[in-house]
Amino acid sequence: MIGVLVNFTQTDKFDRATLTKTAGELRAPFEGMAGLRFKSFMLDEDGVHARNFYVWDDEEKARSFFTEELVEKVTGIYGVPPKIEYLNILEFVDNSGT
């Protein structure tokens, strides 16, 4: 498994209501996506850092998802380009079924 942390940082605060609406609108394409185990849309308490976290089955699937076209698309959505970090997941605990 591999995690991908996508950071968007603005000098001004993101509008929480707008990001919440956007996350709701963008959720459907990720449901059932091959190779994607989890995805979360997040906003830090300070409001200037929006983050999306993905857990993928493998690195190849993760890297093939984050194309230049996708980066351009999300830059348009968030108003700033993302910083994308790939993280090796050493162990994973999933309590969602309990």
Rank of each mutant, 00 (worst) to 15 (best):
T20I: 10
V6R: 03
Y54L: 01
D46A: 12
E68H: 13
G97V: 01
G47M: 08
K13C: 13
Y78V: 04
F14H: 04
D15M: 02
E69D: 13
E45D: 09
L19Y: 05
E45I: 04
F30S: 13
R63A: 09
M33F: 07
G3N: 11
V74Q: 07
A34V: 05
E68N: 15
I77A: 07
R27S: 10
N88K: 14
I89D: 09
E60S: 12
F66V: 10
V48H: 01
G35N: 00
E72Q: 15
E31D: 14
P29N: 08
T67R: 03
G76E: 06
L70D: 11
F92T: 09
V6T: 04
F14P: 09
G47Y: 02
L5H: 15
W56Q: 03
F53I: 06
R27L: 15
I2C: 01
K21A: 12
S64G: 02
M1R: 11
V93E: 12
T20Q: 13
H49E: 00
E45R: 07
A50L: 08
A17E: 15
V48D: 00
E60F: 08
F53H: 08
F30R: 12
V93G: 15
H49N: 10
T9L: 05
G32V: 10
D58N: 13
I2T: 02
A34Y: 11
K21V: 06
F65Y: 11
D12S: 12
K21T: 13
V80D: 07
E72T: 15
E68K: 15
L70F: 13
P82E: 06
